[in-house]
């Protein structure tokens, strides 16, 4: 069960995330014309103070790059995507980049990853609970960071965060992206309400 959500809501959220990522995987496979595998998302509610450790446990002790994107509408929050440095070039080819990437293009790829994965995941969930969600332009947190430096919990305005870990694999190019959805404390309630409504429509 996820903190702040009851058992039904937790199960529903997991299910919606599965479906959302599944759909996203299919859509991406269509664009990229390569088989895309998205792992079943692992969802957990974590203490904000534990986020740096969580990210470290996702990726291990290696340099990472990270980007973020805000979303708003039916529920509000931010998506954070962490990837390890070596994953980027393969993905850039899929995105239609040609030749060696320059510094600006490397940043752009990072921004696109958070946009695509965040959109697929949060957008997927929102669509199924019939919530309208908009996204702001993504921004860069940094490249070649220590995993512990991606988030400074002291600068977060929240106590808990919804963490959603997905592994993302395209044929033989493997990219593991880790996604964390940060929801302000009061927004967990909003999400719970939406999940309840969704559950009602299922029963009806």
């Amino acid at each position: 069960m996820i903190n702040g959500l009851n058992e039904d809501q937790s199960a529903a959220l997991q299910e919606l995330a599965n479906i959302g990522m599944g759909q996203a995987g299919n859509s991406l496979a269509l664009i990229w014309k390569e088989f895309v595998h998205l792992s079943i998302p692992r969802i957990a509610m974590v203490d904000a103070s534990r986020l740096p450790d969580l990210i470290l446990s996702f990726v291990g002790d290696t340099a990472v790059s990270a980007s973020r994107q805000a979303f708003h509408g039916g529920f509000r929050g931010e998506v954070l995507v962490v990837v390890t440095a070596r994953d980027r070039n393969g993905l850039a080819q899929l995105m239609g980049y040609e030749g060696q990437l320059d510094a600006a293009e490397r940043e752009e790829v990072l921004l696109d990853i958070v946009n695509i994965l965040g959109g697929a995941c949060v957008g997927g969930i929102a669509q199924q609970v019939s919530a309208e969600i908009g996204f702001s332009a993504p921004s860069l947190i940094g490249e070649d960071l220590d995993p512990l430096d991606v988030i400074n919990p002291e600068q977060l305005a929240i106590d808990t965060a919804l963490s959603l870990e997905v592994c993302f694999q395209v044929e033989n190019r493997s990219l593991t992206a880790h996604l964390v959805i940060l929801l302000p404390n009061n927004e967990v309630g909003a999400l719970a309400d939406l999940l309840d409504q969704f559950l009602c429509t299922l029963e009806a």
Binding site: A104, N115, I116, A120, G123
Partner: peptide, 11 residues
């Protein structure tokens, strides 16, 4: 995907 996408002058 039916989602927004962006480009920024900085990149």
């Amino acid at each position: 995907l039916g989602n927004y996408a962006f480009t920024s002058w900085e990149q």
